[in-house]
Structures are given as C-alpha cells and as structure tokens.
Simulated assay, not measured.
Amino acid sequence: MGHGLTSIIIPGHNGLQLLQDCVASIRRYTDESVTPYEIIAVDDGSTDGTAAWCAAEQVPFVRLPASHGYPKACNAGLRLASGRNLLLLNNDVTATPRWLQNLLTALHSGSDIGMAGPVTNYASGRQQVDYPFADMDEFQRIAGEVNQSDPGKWEEVQRLVGFCMVIKREVYERAGRLDEQFAPGHYEDDDYCRRVHGLGCRMLMCRDTLVHHTGSASFNRTDRQELQALLERNRKLFIEKWNTDPAQFM
C-alpha cells in the first residue's frame, strides 16, 4: 500500500554546497518506486547561485528576493507542495537507506498520527542518539543496519525537532502554516508541535530511522551573543503564546 507523494521542502540561505549534498543523498537513498517524492528547494535570498543550480538540475524551487528566515521559507515551499505528505528538511541533513519509507510507515500506521521524525547524531532533546562513527561511509553503514522498519522502535513524543519532520497534508491543512513571528528561526517547530497536538494528533519519534545532521550550520555563522538574544526572544514569544515554558516538552 503506497503512502502517496511526499513533498520534501529544503530551505536555505547561501547554503548551495549543503543543498547539493542533501539532494544527492535524497536521490541516492530514496526509492521512487516505493516512495514517490518531489523536492522543493527554497532559496531564501541567497547570493551563491542556489537558484541557478536548481534551474540547471531541474530541482523545483521558489526564490525569496531577501532572506526572511526558516519559518517564512518553509511556508513558501509548502505553498508549492502537492504531496500527500509534507516533509520539512534542513539542508544540512543527509538521507540514509530507507529513511523516507520508514518515516511514512510510521506516519500512516494510525489515523490519529499527525507527524513523524527520525533520530540523528545531532539535535536538541530526545532525538539525539549516540552511534560513534569515523566518517560518512561508516555512518551510512550504521544507518543501513538501524533503518529496518520496526513499530517497536516508535515512541510517542510531545515534541519533534524541525530538522526533518513529516506531516500528513490533512493535518497541515488544519494546523496551518509555520508561525512567521519566530523568524529567522528557533521555537517555530515547538510551536507547530503544540498546534498539532492541540488537534488531538499524536507524534512519533522513529528510532528505526537514523539520518545524519551536521547541525547549527545556518546559525554557526551568527555571533554567539546574537544567537542567545534570538533564543531568548523566541522563547518569550512562545511563552506569551502558550503560557507554557517550552522546556517542559524538551
């Protein structure tokens, strides 16, 4: 039984090399006969030739004339998406064997499941797992062993991190777009989880799906103090909106 088309939305600002690697890994490790997919790149005001590369590679893309940050870029990509499943993917994620197949198996295992996400080497909270590896070849070998679909390895969680999360279209249509007040990023994924949860939908963390995440690639370039200020500002916005400290769900 197929799970329909998956739209993979990859936003990025001046991250052409990351996008190239990310798209190459998706093409290599996603079996289109099992899990049909479309890639939609969102060029968030880049000046590094991202749009030109997408055009040359025939990767559908949307180009924002200036950088607006992650939530707005995701929303621009979501507007173009035609999939039954909508997957938000950071450009510094590397796909692995059966990654999409396993996530969709979990997502469609129950009518009340709204979102699913993998585990990874780098994330905040419970999705970070520790599999020591020396290089990407070894990581892919480990992922090949880990990524055997197993419902016993699905865990219901209150929070999924936005580096790689797949949402059923009907849930997205009820929950709405990402909240752009959290631009350029941080806590928009926590906010989204709260909204999906509020619809009575469950979320699954899939320990049978391991992907690689470089982590903080877009925020490494910002100054530490600036980042702290942004985190603090967005945390306050979250608390004002929900009357709850996001740390409760970490």
Rank of each mutant, 00 (worst) to 15 (best):
S82G: 15
L88W: 09
S46P: 09
I39Q: 03
D43Y: 09
T35Q: 03
F61Y: 15
G69K: 04
P71C: 10
A81R: 02
A81S: 13
R63H: 12
R63I: 00
H68W: 03
G69P: 07
S67V: 07
N75H: 10
V59C: 14
P60F: 01
P36H: 06
L78T: 02
N75T: 05
R63F: 00
P60Y: 01
A51R: 14
R79N: 12
G83P: 03
G69V: 05
S82L: 13
V59W: 01
D43E: 05
D48S: 08
V42G: 02
R84N: 07
L80P: 05
F61S: 11
G69M: 05
D48I: 04
D43Q: 07
S82M: 07
C54E: 07
L87H: 05
Q58K: 15
D31F: 00
T35N: 06
D31I: 00
T50I: 07
T30V: 13
V42F: 02
T50A: 09
G45C: 07
E57D: 09
T35P: 00
P65K: 12
D43A: 05
L64I: 10
D44E: 11
A76M: 11
D48T: 05
A66F: 06
A73M: 12
A81F: 06
V42H: 03
K72W: 10
D48R: 02
Y29P: 01
T47C: 11
C74K: 05
Q58H: 14
V62E: 06
D44H: 13
R27I: 09
P36G: 02
N85S: 14
G83A: 05
T30D: 10
P65E: 12
D44R: 14
C54F: 06
W53Q: 02
P36V: 01
E38F: 01
C54K: 08
R27G: 14
G77C: 08
L86S: 09
D44Y: 13
N85K: 02
D31V: 01
N85E: 04
V42R: 05
T50K: 08
S46V: 02
